[in-house]
Each structure stands twice: as structure tokens, then as C-alpha cells.
Design a protein around this nucleic acid. Structure first.
Lengths: 351, 351
DNA sequence: GTGAAAGCGCTAACAG
DNA sequence: CTGTTAGCGCTTTCAC
């Protein structure tokens, strides 16, 4: 796999446009518009906000002046004056994977429809960073905050409490929520997976996860799976945890290890489809029969897994809908509530 | 592939916390802190901003008061007073795919390091929506704006010009930039792909794309590929465009069509790895020899493609670095410039 | 339907 | 090292 870096043009600094210094030559203000339209500030304000009744003629003049001056309202000023803002703060551990990305997409869709604006912070799975981000976002007097998961630092809790902002926690429902919660149960997903595998007779289980300490929700799935195993007087024959971020590449090596250490395995449970696809490729390459010799079961229901040569047996999750529903709660200013959107068992062909 | 929806708990509305009405019982203000610390407003302001020199004792009292009152600064007020804000507006066509998600991650990383905050808007590939979003973001007097691509509506251009905000355009470099540009050349990537395939003797090419009208950059790659073909007195034997979003599933059906319509093909060029993986699966399943009977070449260098049974021959792109570099330009208030970060030819095993 | 006055909470620009 | 005086650009509240 040779790799050549091709650089088209040298990074040529272009003189061009000077950086606009601190002295903006004065963006037009509401008063400028008012003066030009021969109206008062407040009238212009009403036109801009589409609030209160305005004579058709006045509105027309105002709109004309806005157009002519290229007036851009100043949200900081309006937020200050009205002590409220259309911003919704979103704090996620990451966006660089399909699940989070689809969640964001869903959230954004719903929020935009309600005329909210998203400000996103990425905590990189670090509760301390999350706390800092929550603080920064709260400083904008946001209309609401959306957080991933139910576990937060005490400092974050205090901030949330003193700010008194509506909060929606998403992607986890197994625990005590702060305000509203929109998710499905990871514990139940894990348990459901185990039951699905026990039914046809699988008994010798292995687990393939990814850097565990970082993903509380994967742990909850594993725990759910485990609980069902214990009920049936069974336990894992082996557990392997891939270091680094989850990826198909990582998934490829780990099943090999797992099989090496626990050769009697008849089913492997993966923390995510990405890894399971890697595992599937490995089995295909090594001639390990799937699911006859080894069953594969995973989690997420990614498009990728369903397009694989053998569609993955997995659990599909409604991450886009979680985003949409969370947004809906906020747009409708719904009272605090817990929404369990459930998950979907995808039979597939690997188990 | 049976699918069962499992819902753990009914969506039970919980009474709990009342929605905080419009009357916040008064979050502590800077003046409250000042009073409690026995200092003036401006002193507290300086402590909060870590600016100017403050006696150790004073600072301590102020910090204590802040702690005691749970003071959260009001950014709208400071943005208004200082007519500047730490917000950076980002407008992208989507975040629900690996490429955009990694870009956002890179951007966010770099911006957070420079104490900027990201506000994201998603245009859904619609220039009119982009214009609206640029307007909303500009209303926050952001420190800068990051936009995807070089093509924007005239209205967007006007907004950008009147706002006079630094702009960084990312992910495209083939055209005239507004201010700074950080990307690689899609045209060059397409051309490089074609040359890479011509060298070993492939001559009968097919193209597999996705809903074309939406993805200007894929078009530029195709054009670059085509230009090289024309130079060699060749042309496409067939073009297929999958409807809907790009995905491995879509990629699976389309190569079949392509081969049906243009049976003499010896190489297929895919607009993205997602689809190429689907195509590869199809070939594997149908016993079409890759690359002997049909070579596959694509674009993006996704992890997924490299973990496939046959690692994809493709072009790797530095999307995370594009984000980081764009952020760096903003943090350093660098003068307008064009940064070509290049791309990487990944030999793979499918061509 | 329209307007005048009074801030929202903070910081710039000077003093001392 | 600390404070005073004015706003930033908008919206609220009350009048007319």
C-alpha cells in the first residue's frame, strides 16, 4: 500500500484583504435603520422581530432601509436586553463517528425548525472538559442545554442547577436524569442481545470492546449482556478490549486474539458494528464459518454493517430520532420527562 | 432480516422540576460579585478576564465571591460592550458523514485551544439555507466564519462583505476564495486518480457517483478525471449516479447496473469509499475478479475502506488537518492565504 | 399603530 | 493597582 503525498500549489500567502481591525467602520445599527426609515427604534425592532402590529407602509419603509443599509441585527444586544437567546448549547464526547454525527444532524434539524441555533462543544470524553464547556455555553444564556449521557461532574451539576436552564440528556436512560431524558436503554440492549443469542443455543461467549474507560454506555450494554448470562449460569469465556478509537481496523485484530485465548467460543459480542465488520472480514479471510463456527453480534445498526457480505446481526438505534425528539421537547417547552425511544433487533445473517 | 422494536419503559411524564419561567430569580451579576468582594465592577471584570494587574488579596476576595455566588459571566453583555466575541461560526452542508465529522473535530480542537467557541449551522447542501445561517451567525458578531466550499449565493457574499469578518473556506480550493482557503484540490485528486489508473494500462472506465447536483466537489473530481481521460483520447464508457445519500448500500447496486450497461469496463471510479466498499462487496459476491477483471478506485481514504477484505485503492484526504489548520489561521489572526494541504494516493489492492 | 425613557450586564477610556 | 463615567445596541414598560 504505497502512499504518495501530492501537494498541488505551494501554500502561497496572498496579500489581499486586510484583517478588519478592532475598529469596524460601524455596522449599521437599529437606530441607523430607524433614522433612514423615518421611524423610531422600537418600531424597527418590532418589524425585525415580526411582533406587534405595524402599518403596512411603515413596515415597507423599514424593510427598505434594512435592505439598503445591509443591516444585520446584533444578537448580543437583544440577548442582553431581553435576557434570553435562541442559542441551544450541545455538549458531546465527540462528533467524529456516525452515531454522534447523526444525532447532531437530528438535533440541528429539529432546533432549526424551532428557530434555535446550535452551539456545539466537544468534551472528548472528559468530564472536566464537559464542565468547562457547560460553563462557557451557559454564559450565553442559552435557551437550553443538550448533554450526552447521565454522568456528569458535580461541578457540572452545580452549574446546571444555578443556571436553571432546561436540560435534555440524550443517549442514555439507565440512571437518574437531571431534567428531561431522551434515549433507549443500553442495559436493555445488551440484555436483549444476550437473549437473542441464547435462544438458538449459543453458550460460549466472548466480548470485544474498545477502550472501555471512555465509553460508559458500552459498559452498560456489556453489563446488560452479562446479567442475562449470569441468570443462565453462564459467563464470558473471554474479553478483549481494543485500545484507541473504535474502528473496523481495530476490530480485525481483536477477534483473532480472542479466539486464540478462548478457542471454544461459539459467539462474539462486539461493542459496535465498526468492530464487528472488522471481525467479519477476519473470519472471511481465515475461513472461519460465520455463524456456523462463530456467531457475530454487535450494536448500532450502521448502514455499513448491513451492506457487508453477510449483513450483521445487531441492534439498531434511533440516534437521529433521539436528536429530533430532544429538539421537539425544547421547541415545545415540554415539561421534564423521560422518553424511551427503544431499539430494534436486526436479525442479520451473522448469528 | 427480521426487525423487532423493543421499548423498555413507557414514555412516562415525570412531574419534577418546573420549567424556569421568564423570571429567573436573578443570576448573580458582576456587580453582585463586586459588592460582596468590596471591590468595583471593573476590578471584578479584570479578574474574570485575567487582564491587568490585580493585588493578590483583591483577587482572592473576588474569586471567593464568585465561588460563593455561583457567578456565571454574561457573554452577551461582554460581547456587546467590547463588540467582539469568542464565537466562531461554522456552516457545513452536513455533519452526518465521517469526512465532515472529522473536519468538525479538527476545527473544534484547534478553536478550543485558542479559546474560541464553535457555533455550527448545517445547510443541507442548500445555498439559501447557507445564506440564512451565515446571517444568523453574523448576528453574534463572531470572531470569524468557516464555510465549506467556494460556491456561495450572492446574498451570502454580500453579508460576508458587509460584516467584514475573517472567513476561512475549507474543503475546496479549485476556484476563487473569499478570504482564506484551506483544502486540497479535488480536480487534482480526480486527475491523479485517472493517471494512476492509466499507467498500468486500464483504458475502459466507468464512473459511479451519488446524487450529483448536491456535491460540487465530487463533480470537480470527476471533471479532473475526465480531463486526463480526454488528454489520452479516452472517455467514460458509462456513468451511473446513485440517488440519495452516499452509502455502502447504494454502492452495491450501482456497479451491477454499470456493468450491465457497459460490459467492457475494466475500471470503475467511485465518488467515495463508502460506495466503493459496496461495489467491492458486490464483486466479491458475484465472483467478479478485483482488480483482474475490474479495478476499483475511489476517494476519501476512510478507515473502513482500508479494513475491507481487499484494501481500497483510493485517495486519502487530510480533513482533520484541514480543520486544525483553518483553526490555526484564525487563532493566529493570520493574513488571508490559500493553504493547499495536498492529498495522498493510497495504492491499496483494488487497482 | 407608534414612541420616549430606562435599563440589560458588561467593558473602554480615562483618571488617580 | 483601583475606580469613575459612559456607553455598546437592543428591548421592556408604559404612554399616547
Amino acid at each position: 500500500m504505497d502512499a504518495t503525498t501530492i501537494r498541488t500549489r505551494p501554500g502561497s500567502p496572498r496579500p489581499g484583504l486586510a484583517r478588519p481591525g478592532s475598529t469596524r467602520p460601524g455596522r449599521a445599527t437599529l437606530s441607523d435603520v430607524a433614522r433612514r426609515a423615518g421611524a423610531s427604534d422600537i418600531t424597527v425592532s418590532r418589524v425585525v422581530r415580526g411582533q406587534g402590529s405595524i402599518a403596512a407602509g411603515t413596515r415597507k419603509r423599514v424593510l427598505g432601509a434594512i435592505q439598503a443599509l445591509g443591516y444585520i441585527p446584533n444578537r448580543s444586544a437583544s440577548a442582553l436586553a431581553s435576557s434570553s437567546s435562541p442559542l441551544v448549547g450541545i455538549v458531546l464526547p465527540s462528533v467524529a463517528n456516525a452515531v454522534m454525527a447523526e444525532l447532531v444532524q437530528g438535533l440541528n434539524e429539529g432546533l432549526a425548525a424551532g428557530c434555535f441555533q446550535s452551539a456545539i462543544g466537544i468534551s472528548d470524553h472528559d468530564p472536566a472538559v464537559e464542565e468547562r464547556l457547560v460553563g462557557s455555553l451557559l454564559a450565553w444564556q442559552p435557551a437550553a442545554l443538550v448533554l450526552a449521557g447521565l454522568e456528569h461532574s458535580e461541578g457540572t451539576r452545580v452549574l446546571l442547577r444555578t443556571a436553571g436552564v432546561p436540560v435534555v440528556e440524550v443517549l442514555d436512560i439507565d440512571g437518574r436524569g437531571f431534567d428531561s431524558v431522551v434515549s433507549f436503554s443500553h442495559h436493555a440492549a445488551g440484555a436483549g442481545s444476550a437473549r437473542h443469542l441464547l435462544a438458538p443455543g449459543y453458550r460460549r461467549f466472548g466480548y470485544v470492546g474498545h477502550a472501555a474507560s471512555c465509553d460508559l454506555r458500552a459498559d452498560k450494554r456489556r453489563a446488560g449482556f452479562e446479567a442475562v448470562l449470569h441468570e443462565a449460569d453462564l459467563d464470558w469465556l473471554g474479553l478483549e478490549v481494543a485500545p484507541g478509537p473504535l474502528s473496523a481496523g481495530a476490530g480485525r485484530a481483536v477477534p483473532a486474539q480472542l479466539l486464540g485465548r478462548a478457542p471454544g467460543l461459539d459467539a462474539a459480542y462486539f461493542s459496535s458494528d465498526d468492530m464487528a465488520v472488522g471481525g467479519l472480514f477476519h473470519c472471511l479471510a481465515e475461513g472461519i464459518g460465520v455463524p456456523a463456527r462463530l456467531a457475530l453480534f454487535s450494536f448500532n445498526g450502521l448502514d455499513l454493517g448491513q451492506a457487508a457480505p453477510l449483513p450483521l446481526s445487531t441492534i439498531g438505534t434511533p440516534r437521529a430520532r433521539i436528536g429530533q425528539e430532544a429538539a421537539r421537547l425544547l421547541c415545545e417547552a415540554a415539561p421534564p420527562q423521560v422518553l424511551d425511544l427503544g431499539f430494534e433487533l436486526i436479525g442479520g445473517a451473522t448469528a
